[in-house]
Design a protein around this nucleic acid. Structure first.
Lengths: 112, 112
DNA sequence: CAAACATATAAACACGTATTCATATGTTTG
DNA sequence: CAAACATATGAATACGTGTTTATATGTTTG
């Protein structure tokens, strides 16, 4: 239990931090986060996402390109349409953990 | 196992998304992420963080204010100094999950 | 209270980027 | 091949924000 530190040594710390912040920054935009959530469990087409979220097709496509480049989502073509889905379950874990943090009560007045 | 969806219903989805993206955006800046990592396990003073990361005291203080406002870190005064530490273990979980995602191999060419 | 130290705040600038509009690429169908 | 549909890309703009510089607030000590 003593060595339950972050595995920041696996990659060079410098590069890991860059990759981490890149991913967090991507998820830090409301439109992109909504896009991720829209295709978190099941593949959705670009137009499907745009329609559901009431965002322009162009904007959704721009964002999906960034998300795909960072391997947050994967794409799969089906006929004319391209479907996107979250790349793996870790994306979901990250969001879930953060939601738990949000729901956590505020202990700031208490002692350690 | 069927209802293992995200607990996005607990808060209003709209507000949850705003809070989520706010938190991710905060962690999406390299300096801030490094600051979080610097005080993830143990409390560190502002000057301690600044020195360790070679950032100006002012910059560190600015960032810590944002992080504290979002309850990513907590502060505790000890004499002249103010020590900061990650607010709870969920912050660590989020980062760990994201690191696992980074280390994940690329399955983009394979089938589901 | 004054001086020294530690942190916080304010204003200003520089820079990245989210969004829109227009257009190009790609895919199916007649 | 042309037309219709779906997605991707490029350029331009508007806006937020990370950083710096300077100064203020707060705390201990003599």
């Amino acid at each position: 239990m003593k060595d339950k530190r972050l595995p920041l040594n696996t990659l060079s710390s410098e590069e890991a931090i860059t990759q981490l912040s890149d991913l967090f920054r991507l998820m830090g935009d409301t439109s992109r986060l909504r896009i991720i959530l829209a295709c978190l469990h099941d593949p959705v087409s670009v137009s499907g996402i745009a329609e559901k979220l009431k965002l322009s097709q162009s904007l959704v496509s721009h964002h999906l390109r960034l998300l795909r480049a960072a391997r947050v989502v994967r794409s799969e073509r089906r006929g004319k349409q391209v479907f996107y889905v979250a790349a793996d379950e870790h994306i979901q874990c990250v969001i879930e953990d953060m939601l738990v943090h949000i729901e956590e009560p505020d202990y700031s007045k208490e002692e350690g």
